[in-house]
Computed example of a mutant assay.
Amino acid sequence: MGMQVNTNLAANNTYRNLAATQNDMSKSLEKLSSGLRINRASDDAAGLTVSEGLKSQVGGLTVASRNAQDGISVVQTAEGSLNEVQSILQRVRDLAVQAGNDSNNTDSRTAIGTEVTALSKELTRIAGSTNFNGTQLLDGSKASLSFQVGANGGASSQIQVNLSGANVTNIASAISTGNTGTSFALSTTNALLTTGAQAFTVTEGTATSVVTTTLAGGAGTYKTASDVATALNSDAGFSGKLFASVTYDTTTGAATGINVKSITGGAVATTAPASAGLAAAGTAGAAAALDFSTATGAAAAIGLIDTQIKAVSTARASLGADQNRFESVVKTLAVSTENLTAAGSRIRDTDMASEMVKYTRSSILSQAGTAMLAQANQSNQGVLSLLR
């Protein structure tokens, strides 16, 4: 190899290697100082795409966990109020049992009705005051509530809490006092009903809901008014909105017909069932409520209150199941968040020990390269001796 002055190949080669080493050392410093293996897309394009997706998922799951915890709070608020509603209904039932005794005089039954009225007003207050962050829970304005408990937008990321059975406004209306319901007198000596649809109309607000109940069997199947009332109350469609009880003659004690009350706050129309055995028209009372003025009315009230207690128990059971579900969701989300965070960390975070090894190597090579560049720059000094 000849001796040149204009081109120092050794110095150029050393400089190229030194520049590459310093670039590696700069990247190592960036990773060590930030703690991230991927600081820009050029570090790992595919890894960046995956890690950003995982980051979105982890963020969504974190918020979803808070949503699920809010769901628990909502359910606890509603169920706590329903607990007191059930206590009130139990007290009203006790009063109905007390009113069923003819040892009570008019003043006693009036006092019972006064207490039931006060308890009914308290139910109305509970219905209007039970809310979570301004959302009414027990007044019937919300049939269900939706909670986002997942990171995605699909139905599997949502939980619906059913509040339709927790309508305390209807319960308060159903146990208000002063109502005799709608009575249908027997048109025959016995309730010898033919097979056919027993249709009753329940009017609630501006809507009319026709409840049709079919009593199976031929003539003579239902021999008494009690048979008719039992059959009606056994029908799911009927018992969901109405309650039937037997009416009696206060003098002779003989059954006189059927009394129908709404358990949802509606007024029962005076249209008679389309079947033999009951009178063509009923005698209407006020909107659905309880009557404690007679032993017969109190006995009917007990059955109606039992229906309300059962409805509240069902609603509380549903809310309890929802709370357990929310608690399970919180646990599941915690595990998922932990695992996805670990996955993202393995992709994006710097292995500090491994990167420190690379940095140390680059640092040593940088120092050696600097020293060698100095030597390479001096390698052409020998030419000067030829020029003397």
Rank of each mutant, 00 (worst) to 15 (best):
A280F: 03
A280P: 03
A281W: 01
A281L: 05
G282S: 09
G282Q: 09
G282A: 07
G282Y: 06
T283H: 04
T283P: 01
T283A: 15
T283K: 13
G285E: 12
G285H: 04
G285V: 09
G285I: 05
G285P: 09
A286P: 00
A286W: 03
A286V: 09
A286K: 08
A287I: 13
A287Q: 13
A288M: 09
A288E: 15
L290G: 00
D291P: 09
D291R: 03
F292T: 02
S293F: 07
S293P: 03
T294M: 12
T294Y: 11
T294W: 11
T294V: 11
A295N: 14
A295F: 09
A295E: 13
T296K: 08
G297H: 09
G297P: 11
G297V: 13
A298S: 15
A298I: 08
A298H: 06
A299Y: 04
A300N: 11
A300V: 14
A300M: 13
A301F: 11
A301W: 07
I302A: 03
G303H: 12
G303T: 13
G303Y: 14
G303R: 04
L304V: 06
L304I: 05
L304P: 00
L304C: 00
L304E: 06
L304W: 01
I305W: 00
I305E: 01
D306S: 10
D306H: 07
Q308D: 07
Q308M: 05
I309K: 02
K310G: 07
K310D: 14
K310W: 02
K310A: 13
A311V: 01
A311Y: 01
V312A: 06
V312N: 01
V312R: 00
V312H: 02
